[in-house]
């Protein structure tokens, strides 16, 4: 089954480029332009990974990240944060909030795609271990 990637960014052009890259890499994609839309898509689309921009109108990327990590149902979702504000404290904050990777804009498309591939591969391994190991606390 194809992995599902949810792309969240409020810049339409960046969104177009990310959609192109993700579908070229063979993933199923959906897009959201605001925090509210993103939360709705999380429910509806059940993605394996989110490409999440930090600066969003309304609910921002940090908060979405937090909510995803708080909800047990979404705990397996990988989060790759994207931001144009590349300050150290923000990277630290994103990672502390449970993001799996942090990429600053402007990004290299190859690096981005390979990061996403790596994260999804890890998720699949973990998933395999999880199904074998049975119940987890």
């Amino acid at each position: 089954m194809r992995s599902k990637v949810l792309i969240v960014d409020d810049e339409p052009n960046i969104l177009i480029s990310l959609e192109f890259l993700m579908s070229q890499a063979g993933y199923e994609t959906r897009s959201a332009e605001t925090g509210e839309q993103a939360l709705a898509e999380l429910d509806a689309f059940q993605p394996d990974l989110i490409l999440l921009d930090v600066m969003l109108p309304g609910i921002d990327g940090f908060e979405i990240c937090q909510r995803v990590r708080q909800a047990p149902a979404w705990s397996h979702i990988k989060i790759v944060m994207l931001t144009a504000k590349g300050r150290d404290v923000e990277v630290a904050k994103g990672l502390a909030l449970g993001a799996n990777a942090y990429i600053t804009k402007p990004f290299s498309t190859r690096a981005l795609v390979s990061e996403v591939q790596q994260q999804l591969a890890e998720a699949q391994n973990a998933g395999a271990v999880e199904t074998q190991g049975g119940d987890r606390p």
């Binding site: 810049e11 052009n13 960046i14 480029s17 990310l18 192109f20 890259l21 600066m55 144009a84 504000k85 590349g86 600053t104 804009k105 402007p106 990004f107 290299s108 498309t109 190859r110």
Partner: peptide, 16 residues
């Protein structure tokens, strides 16, 4: 931030 945003699109599409 404001400078990086258009730069991101430019770089991404150029690479694509």
């Amino acid at each position: 931030h404001e400078l990086r945003t258009p730069l991101t699109s430019i770089r991404a599409f150029s690479e694509i």
